[in-house]
Design a protein around this nucleic acid. Structure first.
Lengths: 342, 342
DNA sequence: CGGCTTTAGTAATCCGAATTAGCAGCACCA
DNA sequence: TGGTGCTGCTAATTCGGATTACTAAAGCCG
């Protein structure tokens, strides 16, 4: 009896049992019938019989060795993949990625080994393992330009989920068209009669922030007010809005919109009666609300799907356009109505 | 210039650049310093420098071929990892896994390449790639015994998240002690005066179901009623409970408890006045409710953490006990009070 | 019968790493 | 001055399977 468990069967074993060469076993297994490899039915059956009797299965690793690709799709997230606090912002992206990866027969490698420092991961560190994967998807609000530049310089196949500015070259991405969406909802508000509108949020830093502010300015003009949220309570922001007699606030971050709405309710300020509130995307921080905000949603799932498809195209060399913006899903909602007296 | 993109770097390339042999590169990489392999600091540094400059990473497949650790932790989920519908049941497990993997410097490989058929994945299929990872964690409500048996037979290192029955041998797992938790809350209800109590749910099939029913029976006796939920609306279940003059229902699935509560509210049945409702765990289906149910929660995050730790112990051969049950978190809640007239 | 083609199969390599065996060169010692 | 041992490295082999190159035998033709 084989004391050391069952030493895994190999093609050599099958070959021995079927009295053929390992080559023949391989040919039979791969069902090859080219001119260069003819296996008569008799021999083929003999080999197949042995395979059936022994329950032999080819080692998938050895099999992949001779292929060029590993069928591993890297996923690099600049925050934790499974965050406990930040709500489910990334979830739909990942669902889309998983869906497509599954369809392509790829496994997903999450680079959790990259240490998180200051709440951010860095791609390039001591022992970066990027090259374990065939290619990589990048997720995160902000991705340092130097890291992108290095990926490009090293010619590593990757796709960013979310638009990124050039970094020593164009960055392949599948993003959401925040600019157009923001501009559209701002124009819609203007059509309803709003004349005093403001952008509420960061507006700088990440591309996604800048794109929204840019879209807003495209509709509202370069001097339209931009109210920061950083280090200010929702109440303070609300006061600021009211002081300036703003009639419609375009809030970059949905969580802030929700907080603003709550502050207004508490203060007895009616939304949208006294103030319309437009949400420019989805909550990236935990924030529960059933309220049907006017504004738009980010096509997160679709972005994940398309990002995988683009990476696959890049890897197989069939990619033509490497930068793709998907339209956001506008929602009418109930928080945008004509201003009082309009 | 290399027109054919980046032909993946190999140790041979590194060797050539560093003017040493492939063997030396391998030795340096594996930091070997036996008597049989002495690499002076000077040579080592030269090799490391080239590796750093080129960003070389060992091919995990080739590496696994010759059996070695890869720092890759496989995660096999029997449903989608990122489900769109099923709520967030798996999320905390994965958060725990990610946390520990990060601390150990491991990457997470999600086996999304395993095709989902009938809503379930199968580990063993055409082209299973389990062995890319050093070991694997298994997640899912039900895991076919034959798959577990085969993993055991093949001596593949794995740990199940959730208790599993023996399958041709003991299954290594980190589970939740549903039995004790259910028994404890049932006894607590009895101490409050409840005499007519019932178990509501599947009670069979998955170990997690059976464990709860067993715990319930341990407190309530072997003949205590067990009401099925399958193919019955919450209203029907409620009728059944009232017909039997049950004063406390122990509901296996939190989503069912929520639905039952809603049905009762609609019917004018007071919970817990007319009927106490105990939730035996967390919702595995999407179901939102702020209600503070009496019952318990599953220590999901901790289970994920401990499962990684156990697998690490298994891999390094230091594991002593391979089956671990963590206590559930009992919650007093507001849906269990003494029965009327007690 | 000799030359050419087809058939049926095998030996040799390769994939990218890890590992084993072994080989020069030098120091030290008797 | 030859033997022993250490140092520093490399050639060769292995893992399991895919592929290429090649060969032995049979079939066909004139």
């Amino acid at each position: 009896m084989p004391d050391k468990a069952t030493a895994r069967l190999t093609q050599r074993d099958i070959a021995r049992l079927a009295k053929v060469s390992q080559t023949t076993v391989s040919l039979v297994l791969n069902n090859r019938s080219d001119a260069s490899a003819r296996i008569p039915a008799e021999t083929r059956d003999r080999v197949l019989k042995v395979i059936r009797e022994t329950g032999y299965q080819a080692d998938p690793l050895a099999r992949r060795m001779t292929k060029q690709r590993n069928q591993i799709l890297g996923v690099f997230t600049y925050e934790s993949v499974f965050p406990s606090a930040s709500g489910d912002f990334y979830h739909p992206f990942l669902a889309g990625i998983e869906d497509r990866a599954e369809r392509l027969g790829w496994d997903l490698l999450l680079f959790t080994s990259a240490p998180v420092t200051d709440g951010h991961r860095r791609i390039f560190h001591e022992n970066n393992r990027l090259r374990i994967a065939d290619g990589c998807l990048l997720l995160g609000r902000e991705i340092p330009a130097d890291e992108l530049a290095r990926l490009i310089a090293e010619d590593y196949p990757f796709v960013s989920v979310g638009r990124r500015d050039d970094a020593g070259g164009p960055v392949p991405y599948v993003g959401a068209d925040y600019g157009t969406a923001t501009r559209t909802v701002a124009e819609r508000a203007q059509a309803l009669g709003h004349r005093r509108i403001a952008f509420v949020g960061l507006g700088v830093g990440a591309e996604s922030s800048a794109d929204r502010l840019r879209g807003f300015r495209a509709a509202a003009g370069p001097r339209a007010p931009h109210l920061p949220t950083l280090d200010r309570s929702p109440g303070e922001v609300l006061d600021d809005l009211l002081d300036r007699r703003i009639t419609a606030a375009f809030v970059e971050e949905r969580a802030d919109a929700i907080a603003l709405y709550a502050a207004a309710a508490e203060r007895g300020v009616d939304v949208p009666g006294d103030l319309s509130v437009v949400a420019l995307g989805d909550a990236t921080r935990a924030a529960a609300s059933d309220l049907d905000f006017s504004g738009f949603h980010v096509p997160r799932r679709a972005m994940g799907v398309r990002a995988v498809e683009l990476l696959e195209a890049v890897l197989s060399g069939t990619a033509t356009e490497q930068q793709l913006l998907l339209p956001c899903e506008l929602t009418d909602g109930i928080t945008l109505t004509p201003p009082e007296g309009a």
